[in-house]
Nucleic acid binder design. Structure first.
Lengths: 327, 327
DNA sequence: CTGTTAGCGCGTTCAC
DNA sequence: GTGAACGCGCTAACAG
């Protein structure tokens, strides 16, 4: 920056202003500075600027898995929103471990991110106290909580699972199975299970004619689950796969075995991934507004960073049921 | 840090040493410092440290799309490798636009990242000169180039497409169609097309009995492409979908129409996404070592950052052909 | 509109 | 083993 100042024949301060607040500088000076910047291929040192002004333009995002389209569609929306506003995106992968999340938070805080987006609503004690003692704006995503650290932007896993269960009941299915990811260490999965059970009760169905099982994620997990159900509970009429692409794995397994869908098993899923619209039959599912959650989170976070006044503490972005051929 | 020093009854310098080089400090002092750190919930300011030591621990990664499992599986591997070594990950999405890439590079350089990973081998002039004038270690990924800016870690799109084409020829298919993403603005797609044509020539097939078309990405793009081929070139025997999940979209469309695969159309794909193993028939494809590319890129980048001596300029991680039921 | 002064919070370099 | 001074590159707060 000194070089640029010398070359333009002005002070360092003027260069700084010309770059940060172009309107606070005369047109002539501005031109000279810009010419000098181009000549030297000057790249301002954002770190030094951050240190001096005591604020950074980096946002930290922590997700359970980067290579999972549900999270990455949210990240993409966050990324686009941040870029529009000139902010940077730092990403860490917690792999559903609270300890890893805590490490990532510590690491982000050490880099003085101006805000955090956490795809998780459970945290270690230390993580919570760190965030609140530093006072960094934080958006929690992935589940609706009543008392967020700061701000929560999400849909309700409980409500969504309950709504789908009731939807299946209204379609006439009375023996319904619920397949989820491992419940331990996964609050979202537990909330969905609770929503399912609430739906069963509200429908007035016999709880012992229904079923709750856990499965591995992925297509294989779904295929395994449907085989297990056929073997141990053949009277089941509908299966609600509450995560991931398990429903597709189950459908493909049914095709391999010549089992009709929905005649032998009706199938429903939780997220509207592209694939569900392309298989035969198309699969009934919930539409979770992942991209909108990302966009809204980033917007509210930046509003918090600008310390804009009243911001809602909890934003429920809802969900929709997409009825298709598989139910 | 001042607070910590006062609380521990030592100088700021001693605190700094206790945190960075614990072995250079007496056990007693170390204990007192750590107690003070815990008491104040002190989080060291990494930015200030970077500024002072003139190096940061952040790596910038630029991909054409965050929400694309081919890139995100690479990113995940990068993320894991960086975390092991205590480095941070910044991500930007260029959307296949060179202008956006240049902006992202400028932005990363301003944040003084210690290295760059670019999923792209074409860049604007300004981007190239910026990188080389700053001299920041840079890994290019996504296509094998002879003269990389710095280091290139990839597979060869040309060789892979050629190998698959020859594989199809050896299986007896003589009229082969090649479906790719839009060729403009996409060097990888062009290299694959060139590889296909080279394969056709090497097989000694009549070029006019073959076909090259462009399609939209995604399942729908594949479905549209196979319909177009059936209509305009029904004599085609095998279709090589050179990107994304188009092959699955095509297979599902064939199922809807009752067209046998491979009897009416043989189908092959480019990346071994999980789905290809689960549909009926399973789909022949290329295995591109995306995760290994990510891991290797991160490792070589960190080696460059540590200014380790001789590093290969071009690393070819190869590919494999996975023969399945669809061909 | 422009320049001057004084740090931002840490690491480096020397002394002690 | 420990501490004091200085500077990294920039910007906030004044003064001119």
């Amino acid at each position: 920056m000194k070089d640029v100042a010398a070359r333009a024949g002005v002070s360092v301060m003027t260069v700084s202003r010309a770059l940060s607040h172009p309107d606070k500088v005369s047109g002539e000076t501005l031109r000279r500075v810009q010419a000098a910047v181009d000549a030297v291929l000057y790249v301002p040192n954002g770190l030094a600027g951050n240190l001096s002004s005591r604020r950074s333009k980096a946002v930290g995002v922590i997700v359970p898995g980067i290579n999972n389209s549900l999270y990455s569609s949210m990240i993409e929306a966050v990324s686009a929103t941040l870029r529009e506003r000139g902010f940077h995106l730092m990403i860490a992968d917690s792999g559903l471990s609270l300890e890893n999340e805590e490490k990532a938070i510590t690491s982000f805080l050490a880099q003085r991110v101006c805000g955090l987006i956490l795809h998780n609503t459970q945290h270690t004690r230390k993580a919570r106290s760190l965030i609140s003692s530093i006072g960094v704006p934080t958006i929690e995503v992935g589940n609706l909580v009543e008392r967020p650290i700061d701000v929560c932007v999400s849909y309700s896993n409980f409500d969504a699972a309950k709504a789908m269960t009731i939807h299946l009941g209204r379609l006439g299915y009375r023996r319904i199975a619920f397949v989820s990811l491992a419940l331990s260490n996964n609050e979202r999965a537990r909330k969905r299970r609770d929503g399912f059970l609430a739906g069963i009760r509200e429908l007035g169905l016999a709880e012992d004619s229904c079923l709750t099982i856990e499965a591995e994620s992925g297509l294989q997990g779904g295929a395994d689950a449907i085989k297990r159900i056929a073997k141990t509970a053949p009277s089941i009429e509908a299966v609600f796969f509450s995560a991931d692409v398990m429903a597709v794995g189950a459908l493909l397994e049914c095709q391999r075995r010549g089992w009709g869908v929905p005649s032998k098993f009706a199938i429903s899923s939780f997220d509207d991934v592209d694939l569900l619209r392309h298989v035969n039959p198309t699969i009934t599912t919930l539409l979770i507004p992942r991209a909108e959650i990302g966009r809204k989170s980033a917007e509210l976070l930046l509003a918090r960073v600008d310390s804009q006044p009243t911001i809602p503490k909890v934003v429920d972005l809802g969900f929709d049921i997409i009825q298709r051929e598989s139910t």
